[in-house]
Amino acid sequence: MAQINVGVLALQGAFSEHIMLLRHAFAMLQAERDDSSWIATEVRTPEQLNACDALIIPGGESTAIALVASRCEMLEPLRSFVKIERRPTWGTCAGLILLAEAANRTKKGGQDLIGGIDVRVNRNYYGRQVESFEADIDLPFLKTGQPGSETRPFRGVFIRAPVVEKILPQVSGIQTAEQEHPETIVAPSKAPRDSFSASKLSAPVEVMATLPGRTNVNDLPQRVKEESDGDIIAVRQANVFGTSFHPELTVDPRIHIWWLREVKDAVAENRSHRI
């Protein structure tokens, strides 16, 4: 029975909510005779991060999380975890921003990104708190046909939420074209270390969910929506998954369960490459 340690970055934000839902999801997986031994841990130091097989970066304030991470020397270990070791990582809201290779509408002087998904994220796309909302969203990836899979919509809670406004070309270095855009910041290079991390570089960005029919209150001229007629609210590229809404603010563990199944496969693959 292999142990899988799922970390939740606990520098700031809604980390205890994720831990609560993870434990709920563990119990449901075990009820399905899943043979893994799952544990959830709060991560505040590089040592704690290194002990994790997978990581969730929770909702919170992305500027605060990035500043705290930088000061306690967590940024490089996080980049290495996501982009070199290619361990499964999921970011919600602020987490999605940090996992994007490019972002705009950040604070003056920009902010640090971890990177990992070749997208540009518009940080407070939906505007200020008065524009925050809840909506029923359709998540095609939950309709797996596996036991427990259902078709009812997921209650998406969007708090000063970001969206993915552009899918970027896959490049092995930094997103240099994005640097040309005004007020757009990019993550540092993700040069692969070995054939395993190199193999993940060619993975395409998958649009996992969109939210149709919402009009944006801050219609920015540079906003370009691609490959979709709705706002992109969930994306995945190789080992990195991001959602612009907050499953941790619901009692619905379906996305956590789906992601843990992905984690289990990825951990098996990852471990076989490390031996």
């Binding site: 606990a10 520098l11 700031q12 934000g13 809604a14 980390f15 205890s16 909510e17 909702g59 919170g60 304030e61 605060a64 809201c93 602020a94 708190q129 008065v130 524009e131 925050s132 909302f133 809840e134 909506a135 029923d136 809670v157 708090i159 000063r160 919402r214 907050h246 603010l249």
Partner: peptide, 19 residues
Amino acid sequence: NSGNTFAVKAGLARMLKGG
């Protein structure tokens, strides 16, 4: 779709936790 529910109001406070 609904804005300004109590979940949305209290949700922002949760995002500030640990800060």
